[in-house]
């Protein structure tokens, strides 16, 4: 027992404050994108998933893989900031116009926030996810993020849950399981689509084996973009849903 105590003393207290400071993100981290207003044709041609539309001068963060190919192709047209707050309560809210400012949103209605604001249990469903989104949800349970301090917890059964967090493009082979898990969750309930796949199909958009995201099967209350989203982006999205604009 003494060895454990000595090691605990040596490693110290490691739970990080929330909201996170900029030192939590690599200087090469690609967060919230910004369109400068310059023509997008060149940048759009570099996008592997068609997230940029030159005709509409718009960037759909829900499809974006945050690979940075657009900014590399035309740095004058697209920039990536290091802002990790990317969530939106609506799918259209993730579409950025040029010059406009994006503000993360997506809080649940006041009665649900009152209900879930201090105690929110989520059942995670991986439906074709590559295990990167799943891993970054798992990491929220570690002592560094300490999800529990916000009253949020991932639970084993949908019967114990107040909502679902869905990852992956929803494969046809997971459609039934996702629907059953949703049905097994007692209402009122909330659904979070986490990651480019769950929001829009991600790199698998258009594949006949997938349904193009969680909204094809269940009603989604919160969309969190990224491939995968940074754990702080996911945490920000979850807390925004149940607590409103906290930061």
């Amino acid at each position: 027992m003494f060895k454990e105590l000595i090691e605990r003393f040596r490693q110290g207290h490691r739970t990080a404050p929330f909201p996170p400071g900029p030192e939590k993100f690599s200087d090469r981290y690609l967060g919230l994108p910004r369109l400068t207003g310059a023509p997008l044709a060149k940048a759009a041609a570099a996008c592997p998933v068609g997230a940029l539309s030159a005709a509409d001068s718009a960037l759909d963060m829900g499809r974006c893989l945050f690979c940075g190919a657009c900014a590399k192709a035309d740095p004058a047209a697209v920039e990536f900031t290091r802002d990790h707050r990317l969530s939106s309560g609506s799918r259209e809210g993730l579409v950025l116009g040029s010059g406009g400012t994006f503000r993360a949103s997506g809080e649940a209605p006041p009665d649900l926030r009152r209900l879930f604001g201090r105690s929110f249990r989520l059942r995670q469903v991986s439906a074709g996810g590559c295990n990167a989104c799943e891993a970054d949800c798992n990491v929220l349970g570690t002592l560094a993020f300490d999800l529990g301090r916000f009253g949020v917890q991932f639970v084993a059964s949908p019967r114990h849950a107040d909502g679902l967090l869905v990852t992956g493009p929803v494969t046809k082979n997971m459609e039934l399981a996702l629907r059953k898990t949703y049905d097994a969750t007692p209402g009122p309930k909330l659904v979070i689509a986490c990651g480019a796949c769950a929001v829009s199909g991600g790199p698998y958009a258009g594949h006949a084996e997938t349904l193009g995201g969680a909204a094809a099967v269940v009603p989604v209350d919160m969309f969190i973009p990224g491939c995968p989203p940074h754990p702080y982006t996911i945490l920000d999205g979850i807390l925004r849903l149940i607590n409103g604009d906290i930061v």
């Binding site: 991986s126 074709g128 992956g168 493009p169 494969t171 698998y204 594949h207 084996e209 997938t210």
Partner: peptide
């Protein structure tokens, strides 16, 4: 298994 089949090798 097979639940995660998303057609990636085909693509």
């Amino acid at each position: 298994l097979g639940y995660q089949h998303r057609g990636v090798e085909r693509a």
